[in-house]
Design a binder for these strands. Structure first.
Lengths: 245, 245
DNA sequence: ACAAAAGTGTTAGGATTACACCCATGT
DNA sequence: ACATGGGTGTAATCCTAACACTTTTGT
C-alpha cells in the first residue's frame, strides 16, 4: 500500500489525469483464445494490463509503451476499439484509500485489443502485480472493476474485424498448419466450419503460401505448413475478405 | 475573446480536463448526406458541435447533452466510433491565447456520430457560434483543427455499421418512399444499385411496412410510402443484415 | 405523351452447404 | 489398423447482377 501512495505522487506530475488505457491481449494456444491478465498484489483480483497517458504522448504510442512495461509484449498488433467511462467505474474499488490518491480519480478508459503469437511473448511481472498469466477466455478469474466487460467488448470487436484486420497473421506463429488456422476461425466465430469448404475458401483468397517442408515429429501424418503472404493479405483486407463464414 | 476567457474560468471547475467530445451529426436531405456544422464567432472556420464532460457525467449522457445545447438536436441516435488524440491536435489553433485558457490544454476527443431525420431538427445557435448549418459532405467548408479527419472517420464507421445499426430508421423520416431509401443506401455506399434487386432484397428482410396511402401532391405517379417495423428491424440487425449490396 | 414509380420475370453465373471419396503418413 | 491431415468431386440450393417487361398514375 505504501507502494501505491509513492506511485500516486509521481503520477500526478507525469500523466494526464482522468484518462487510462487498458489493453486486452489475446493469444491463441492449445485451440483456445487466451487473455493476458495480471494479478494484483495483496488482492485476489485480476486486472488487464493498463496504464496512463504521458502528457506529451500519442494514444497508440501510450498503448504500446504500457503493454511493454506491464507485460513485456513488444512489436504487437494493437487496435483501439472503444472508450468506457461510467462515472463510478473505479471509485468503489479504491474506496478505503485516501482521496488524493491518483487511482481514486474518475477515469475514462480507452480500450485496445492486442493480438500476439504467444509463443513469442516473454511475460514480465511489474511492480504492481504478483503474476502475469494467460487465462482462457472461457474461464476468466475474478476481475477488478469493469474489466470483464472490457474483455467482452474487445472480443466482440475482434469478431467484427475478422475480415478487415490481419487477425490470423497476428495470432498465429509465422508458420502454421491448416487445422490450426481453421480452429482459430472456429474459436473466434464460435461455430464449427466444414473442413473442405474452409480449405477451398481460404485458399481462394490467395493470401497463403505453402512451405516446402511439413511439420515433423508429432504423431500421425505430418501436416503441411503455411504462412501468410503479408502483402497479399493486407491488400485483400482493404476491401474486406468478402465472406460469410 | 472576453467571452472565451469567461467561459474558460467556469470550465476548470465544471469539467474533466483533457477530455472533449465531438459529434458528427449526419442528415440526409435532397439525396445528399449532410453534416451539421457551427461557424465560430470572429473566425472563418467551422467546427463540429462539441463540448466537455461534466465531472459526474457518463460519456453517452454527455454526448446527448452537448448536442442538445449546441445544436438543439434532441432524441437522436448516437454512436461512439473512436478516440482521437495526437498531442498537438488543438494547441496550434489557440497559440495566441493565454496559457491557462481551458481550450489550450491538450485534449483527447471522443468521437460520436449522430443520425437525424433533419426535417425534424430545429437548429439552435449557441454563444460560441455565429451560424449552425447543414453542409453537404461533398462540399465541406474550411474546418478547424482535425475536424475534417473526424468527419471522415465517422463516415467510414457509418459505412461499416450499415448492416448492424438502424441507419435507415434514423436518417429518414418516419414515412419514406422506396426511391428515397435506395438513394440513402447508394449515397452511403457510394455506388449505384439496381432498382429491382434493391427492392426485392430490402423487402426480403421483412423490416418494412407499406402504408395504405401513397404520397400525393408531387408530379408523376404518387410513390408508395413505407415505414420501418422497428422491432423486426432491430431483430434483423442483431445478426447483421447479411448482404453484399 | 412522358416521366416516375411499382412490381415481377428471367437468366447466367457464382457462392454456399453438406457430403463423400481417395490418398498420404506416422505410430 | 487407425487417426490425422490433404486435396478434390459433386449436387442441391441459394444469391447476385443485369436487364427487361408491364402496369400505374400525375402533369
Amino acid at each position: 500500500m505504501e507502494y501505491l501512495i509513492e506511485l500516486s505522487k509521481e503520477a500526478w506530475g507525469k500523466y494526464l489525469p482522468h484518462i487510462s488505457i487498458d489493453s486486452v491481449v489475446f493469444g491463441f494456444h492449445e485451440g483456445e483464445i487466451k487473455v493476458l491478465l495480471l494479478k494484483m498484489k495483496d488482492v485476489e483480483k485480476w486486472v488487464l494490463p493498463g496504464g496512463y497517458l504521458l502528457k506529451e504522448e500519442g494514444l497508440d504510442e501510450a498503448a504500446y509503451r504500457i503493454l511493454k512495461e506491464r507485460s513485456g509484449a513488444d512489436k504487437i498488433f494493437l487496435h483501439q476499439f472503444g472508450v468506457l467511462g461510467s462515472p463510478q467505474r473505479s471509485q468503489e474499488f479504491f474506496k478505503d484509500l485516501p482521496d488524493d490518491l491518483w487511482h481514486k480519480q474518475r477515469f475514462i478508459t480507452i480500450g485496445y485489443y492486442a493480438l500476439v503469437d504467444n509463443t513469442e511473448i516473454r511475460v514480465v511481472v511489474d511492480q504492481l502485480s504478483d503474476l502475469c498469466e494467460w487465462k482462457p477466455l472461457t474461464q476468466l478469474p475474478d476481475l477488478a472493476m469493469d474489466h470483464r466487460n472490457i474483455i467482452e467488448s474487445a472480443m466482440e470487436a475482434l469478431r467484427l474485424d475478422l475480415n478487415h484486420k490481419p487477425v490470423g497473421y497476428n495470432l498465429l506463429p509465422t508458420n502454421f498448419t491448416m487445422p490450426e488456422l481453421q480452429r482459430l476461425y472456429e474459436t473466434i466465430l464460435n461455430k464449427s466450419l466444414n473442413r473442405g469448404n474452409f480449405y477451398r475458401k481460404i485458399m481462394s483468397f490467395d493470401i497463403l503460401e505453402k512451405l516446402e517442408e511439413p511439420r515433423k515429429g508429432a504423431a500421425h501424418k505430418s501436416p503441411n505448413l503455411y504462412r501468410f503472404n503479408l502483402g497479399k493479405y493486407e491488400a485483400a483486407l482493404k476491401s474486406g475478405l468478402q465472406s460469410s463464414w
